[in-house]
């Protein structure tokens, strides 16, 4: 019997493509976000309202991941933005998106004119956390009815995210939910996590979210402007 030593990350291939995605979109000056949550927490409605507010100012694109159906794509296409659907049932009904699928899907957009790319991941708090897609920000949405303990139950998702959106704040009068405890639980796992509370339905708290996106879009464009200036001065 022989032991062949390897020492290799099992997901090295995915990680490498995620790294390429990150560089690729950075060169194009596109702000990219991977939106993740459990099913029914409001990803699509948040995207609809977000895009409606941003689309006159910025060109937005969406990669829509679902196990099956194109329901969410149809909703978003009504806003007049480009949507590319990935149905994972063609990949064995997978519960997450992988970096390579994002890379391929991105080629469908007019990338030189795109400002923001949203990836709506498959509704799931477990699997997408393990597969990096190479976006600038991992954004986890948790809605108030889901309970305070979800960050503790799915720690990897909250550790791997940079922004957490607490959605369905309008339901608080009907729920026995302690939002402070929900936030504290998330902060115990990821003290650096930026937390925003809002309601996609009433758009309460939406201004702060939109302002944050606008700040980040502008940050992405700074290196491109410097490049253009360098070219001019050459």
């Amino acid at each position: 019997m022989t032991e062949i030593k390897i020492i290799k990350k099992v997901l090295a291939a995915n990680d490498a493509i995620a790294e390429l995605n990150l560089k690729f979109f950075a060169e194009k000056g596109i702000l990219t976000m991977d939106i993740m949550s459990s099913p029914g927490s409001g990803k699509t409605l948040i995207l609809e309202k977000t895009i409606a507010r941003l689309k006159d100012k910025y060109k937005c694109g969406v990669i829509e991941g679902d196990v099956s159906t194109t329901n969410d794509s149809v909703r978003l296409q009504k806003l007049g933005v480009e949507v590319v659907q990935i149905n994972t049932d063609a990949f064995g009904g997978d519960c997450h998106l992988e970096a390579e699928w994002i890379k391929d899907a991105a080629l469908n957009f007019d990338l030189d004119n795109l400002d923001i790319l949203f990836v709506e991941n498959v509704g799931n708090l477990v699997c997408p956390a393990e597969f990096q897609t190479g976006m600038d920000f991992n954004i986890v949405i948790l809605s108030t009815p889901e309970g305070e303990d979800k960050p503790v139950k799915y720690p990897l998702m909250f550790r791997e995210s940079q922004v957490m959106i607490i959605n369905k704040m309008d339901l608080l009068p009907y729920l026995d939910i302690d939002v402070k405890l929900m936030k504290d639980n998330a902060k115990k796992i990821n003290p650096e996590l930026k937390i925003l509370s809002l309601s996609a339905k009433t758009e309460e708290g939406f201004d702060e979210w939109i302002e944050w996106i606008e700040t980040e879009v502008e940050k992405k464009k700074v290196p491109l402007r410097i490049k253009v200036q360098e070219k001019k001065s050459d």
């Binding site: 022989t2 032991e3 030593k5 390897i6 990350k9 099992v10 997901l11 393990e130």
Partner: peptide
């Protein structure tokens, strides 16, 4: 999530 080695005959 690492592969360490293969035991073969």
């Amino acid at each position: 999530l690492d592969i360490v080695s293969l035991i073969v005959e």
